[in-house]
Nucleic acid binder design. Sequence first.
RNA 1: UGACCCAUGGUGUAACGGUAGCACUACUGAUUUUGGUUCAGUCAGUUAAGGUUCGAAUCCUUAUGGGUCAACCA
Length: 565
Amino acid sequence: MSEDLKSKEIQPTEGQEKSLNFIEEIIETDLASGKYKTIITRFPPEPNGYLHIGHASSICLNFGLTLKYGGYTNLRFDDTNPITEETEYVESIKEDVRWLGFEWKHELYASDYFDTLYEYAIRLINKGLAYIDDSASEEIAEQKGTPTSVGHRNQFAERSVEENLRLFEAMKDGKYKDGEKVLRAKIDMNSPNMLMRDPIIYRIKHAHHHRTGDKWCIYPMYDFAHGQSDSIENITHSICTMEFVPHREVYDWLIHNLEIFPSHQYEFARRNLSHTVMSKRRLLQLVNEGHVTGWDDPRMPTISGLRRRGYTPESIRDFANRIGIAKRENTVDVGLLEFCAREHLNKAALRRMVVFDPLKVVITNYAGEGETLRAENNPENPNGGEREISFSNELYIEHEDFMEEPPKKYFRLAPGQMVRLKYAYIIKCDEVVKDNAGNIVQLNCSHFPESRSGADTSGIKVKGTLHWVNAKDCVKVQVNEYDRLFGVEDPSGSEGDFRNYINPDSLQVDENALAEPALKDAVINDRFQFLRKGYFTLEKDSAADKLIFNKTVGLKDSWAKESKK
RNA sequence: UGACCCAUGGUGUAACGGUAGCACUACUGAUUUUGGUUCAGUCAGUUAAGGUUCGAAUCCUUAUGGGUCAACCA
């Protein structure tokens, strides 16, 4: 990563007092009361998919809290289901967290605690608080009742401690087939909370686990693993999303009856982003059905996708801070994410000139062989330095920067109209050259020698400044312009299938763009602002003889709005 | 016809019984060798009805709206 990008954290609220979110308030209360001396949080992904922008929010929250209040954050993989979890995901998750700029204290796995968890289960059985149930899955579901009617226990709940102990051990020893028996906590079949109706806490799965291999054929359920893992790690504030609110009762019950360290669970509403989908199922569908090229397709809301798209960790952290956390349903406009990208990139990105749809310009009164001009790398950064660019009598400008019959307020080139070429001269369009089909193929212009940038004595004032490249040394590059993947705000909540709302123009490839030669030196993670176009980064599949750039986000374009009026 | 969670401008988030604020968006204008940036400004909000109180976005009740819960998923 270049030096420019290692800028300090963006402080949107610098100089003001930022009010606390509800979790920070809880933490400050706990710290003030002496309940805890130090704060420990955890980020607990299940390694069965790639992380997305919603996870980024959670990561920033959990790590941000311990950075702010002291303490540390663990990375704990919630790997209690061997069927769906893979090492590949573990690696991508670690890469994403690191890329976002956070360091975990311990890399842990729920599977690290399988022995302890097994002991905990025995502890529960000994207290008469857990039993082996031989019922089939459907029977158990049926006996649980419904949200509006209570459940009832079956005869297996009456088994003795000794029998339960013996059966549980047999379960562990692989004496039974998948689904033949389960271990259930004995809580309350009349509870209005379905999760309290004797939840299953251990099930049989003769499956290979990505870490413990074939050591176990019984695996704890989420409810019997998560809270205990928190407790084992002395997590003080266990933060999760709102759908786990009903689980808190189980979480607390288990901690209380196991008599272990009392971690506490706090819930916030997951952040939804407009114009995209976030569920693992839908994301997977997009990948599998080829609507995108992979999990890291630049149009995906995954962290790897955003990274490939050119988003910086700083911009994503800034985004997470700005949207904050709360308990209510929300849909954050993707426009805010884009704003955060521009905000950082404006300060960090090197300015370069690239013409996407070239139109040849010949400077008819330019006599010399050519000359070298100075161009600043970033007007927002005084230390950004300059580069040299070459000028000659043959240039290319953007086709859309010329109109034969311009509307009012069109500040660009038109017959008889003058514009400045950025870092160079003011030119005037004298003649339009067309081919037989009537297409404009060339502009003959004259320049004003005394109007050179930095030494302008011409006194001419122009309204427009254009980017351009020198025909003599420009390089052909490919540009991938990405737009929102979905045309509607909430594809999942809209009528019919979410795939109906896929934006057919979410990717526009331009293989014939012309770039100034400095771009030949671009490397991965470089960020550029292509003047008047937007922010771009080098695509990972780019090669020396075929440079490819991905558009991160466009510049604000008030002319686009104006011209639509 | 249950339980639980939630409700502040278009969006996100503050105000902790005492002036409804901030950011994004949108719109004006100024500056500008990027129609970018920057700067100044404008529009715009407490779901509803009762109650408590000198005073309610905040506390209470009810209604309404939204979300979650009946996986051997997490």
